[in-house]
Amino acid sequence: MREPLLETLELTRRFGGLAAVKSVSIAFAPGEVHAVIGPNGAGKTTLINLLSGDLPPTSGRILFKGQEIAGRPAHSISHLGIGRSYQKTNIFLNFTTRQNCWLAAQSRLPTSFRFFSPAHRRQDVAARADKALALTGLEARAGRLAKEMSHGEQRQLEIAMMLATEPELLLLDEPMAGMGAEESERTVELIRKLAADHTVVLIEHDMDAVFKLADRLTVMVNGEVLETGTPESIRTSPAVREAYLGEEEALS
């Protein structure tokens, strides 16, 4: 494997006595879609929270391009080129779709400590926001208040906001959560398109989507990595079958 873009080494996060993530070491190769799967409570979202800086780790290291980023605040990690979307929709509900993307796009200005020039005249910001809207197919919804949109559209907006920050690495936390079949299909297409020029860390429960998209899979159980491998090797791994997939036939 090539030099990983992102790497965790013995990463651990405890909540009181509970280790939600237990000495997890995963290497995420550049350009790949690397899915992290596992049953509920496996520590997938906690892992993403550690990678994005939403949570500081208890111990262990996180290397992004060889640079230690563990313990850095979220805003600083965002500026390294790591963007994330949330499982639980985390948007600006009282703002329009476009304002949501606008704020995301404006974060790439060298500074927002500009007090006197009108924000809406920033063409560079507008271009970034529009590009994110176009990619996610939300242009027609640009003027809508986020809270008035359907759940599926809000999920799309969640991704659009992440894209407007122009990240290099995408951390997608269950992007298809609560979506209908058609919306899911569209999101799969979107992620496939993004995968062409982004590195993606994908957490998803929809196994169809995972196996359609992933170049590599890591299976987590009880906060620990059970196995990492290609979709094929995971599909046929007896350990994975036993611990996680059980009798599931969806994979055969």
């Binding site: 805003h75 965002s78 985390n90 600006f92 304002q99 606008w102």
Partner: peptide
């Protein structure tokens, strides 16, 4: 725009950088 974003959802503002 930033302070209004903070009022609406500070957590997301941090995640946005």
């Amino acid at each position: 725009q930033v302070i209004m974003g903070i009022k609406e959802n500070e957590h997301r503002m941090q995640a946005l950088g």
